Amino acid sequence: MQSGFLTAGVDEAGRGPLAGPVAVAAVILDPDRPIAGLNDSKKLSEKKREALYPLILERALACCIVLVEADEIDRLNIFQATMAGMSRAVAGLSRVPGEALIDGNKLPKDLPCAGRAIVGGDALEPAISAASILAKVSRDRLMVAMDDTFPGYGFAVHKGYPTPAHLAALERLGPCPQHRRSFAPVRRLLEGSASD
């Protein structure tokens, strides 16, 4: 049953890494069940994010977490893949929001409701903060699990971001199936091995 105007917060994690998916979350918070401590996930410790994650899932009116995999990122480009993930996350909510608040300065074209882009929204709007925490924790957990499947890259530590250790492992081992082929460091390696 729909009562009142519902607002969804939407954010992503993992646009910058060389490997793994982009995680996108949409959250409709319950005004009657506030969650203390919400903030931009990047400003919270891992321990704090992990503590907030189950609270958000339990208290929110609706949540949806979507993963856009590396092959789709390569096909669409990272910006379009993120936009597609945002639309899917909002469409996947069990309740239909009247408006989606998107962190950033761009709106997906095919949002299933009205949308508003808010620069720095993950620190300003609790629903976007909640979405940023769900996206970040989901993605981090996935990258830790991926470390077992593809050992040697250090995914559990750097989560796929282009750290010196990750770049060195990439050089040593070559890309794994989770690496984004369209990202420059991976592409250069592949082009280099093709010309050997």
Rank of each mutant, 00 (worst) to 15 (best):
Glu50Trp: 12
Lys42Asn: 02
Arg59Met: 06
Glu50Ser: 14
Leu61Ala: 02
Lys42Glu: 01
Arg49Met: 11
Tyr53Ser: 14
Ser41Val: 07
Tyr53Asp: 14
Ser45Leu: 14
Ala62Gly: 01
Ala51Asn: 10
Lys48Asn: 05
Ala62Phe: 02
Ala62Thr: 00
Lys48Cys: 09
Leu55Glu: 14
Ser41Leu: 11
Cys63Val: 11
Ala51Glu: 14
Leu38Arg: 01
Glu58His: 12
Leu52Gly: 04
Glu46Arg: 15
Pro54Ala: 05
Ser41Met: 06
Ile65Val: 15
Arg59Ser: 01
Pro54Met: 04
Leu61Val: 02
Glu46Asn: 12
Ser45Val: 10
Ile56Gly: 03
Glu46Ser: 15
Arg49Trp: 13
Ile56Lys: 02
Leu52Asp: 05
Pro54Ser: 08
Asp40Trp: 04
Leu55Phe: 04
Leu57Gly: 08
Val66Glu: 06
Ile65Cys: 13
Tyr53Met: 14
Tyr53Gly: 15
Glu58Lys: 13
Ser41Arg: 03
Leu44Ser: 01
Lys43Asn: 11
Leu67Lys: 09
Arg59Thr: 00
Cys63Gly: 01
Asn39Gln: 10
Arg59Lys: 11
Val68Trp: 05
Arg49Thr: 11
Lys42His: 07
Leu57Trp: 07
Ala51Pro: 08
Leu52Trp: 08
Pro54Phe: 00
Asp40Phe: 07
Glu46Gly: 14
Ser45Lys: 11
Leu67Asp: 09
Lys42Tyr: 06
Leu44Gly: 03
Lys48Leu: 06
Ala51Cys: 10
Asp40Lys: 09
Glu58Ile: 08
Lys47Phe: 13
Glu58Ser: 15
Val68Met: 10
Ile56Glu: 01
Leu44Pro: 05
Leu67Ile: 04
Lys47Ile: 12
Glu46Trp: 14
Arg59Glu: 00
Ile65Gln: 07
Cys64Val: 03
Tyr53Ala: 14
Val68Tyr: 02
Ala60Thr: 00
Lys43Leu: 14
Pro54Asn: 04
Lys43Cys: 11
Lys43Gln: 15
Ala60Gly: 02
Leu44Glu: 06
Glu58Ala: 12
Leu38Ile: 02
Lys47Thr: 13
Leu44His: 03
Ser45Asp: 07
Ala51Gly: 09
Cys63Tyr: 05
Asn39Val: 05
Lys42Val: 04
Leu61Trp: 01
Leu67Ser: 11
Glu58Gln: 13
Ala62Gln: 00
Lys47Asn: 13
Ser41Gln: 05
Ser41His: 07
Arg49Asn: 13
Asp40Ser: 13
Asn39Pro: 07
Ala62Lys: 00
Arg59Tyr: 00
Val66Tyr: 03
Leu61Arg: 07
Asn39Ile: 04
Leu52Arg: 06
Arg49Gly: 08
Leu52Ser: 10
Glu50Tyr: 11
Leu55Asn: 08
Val66Lys: 08
Lys42Asp: 03
Lys48Val: 09
Arg59Gly: 02
Pro54Glu: 01
Cys64Gln: 08
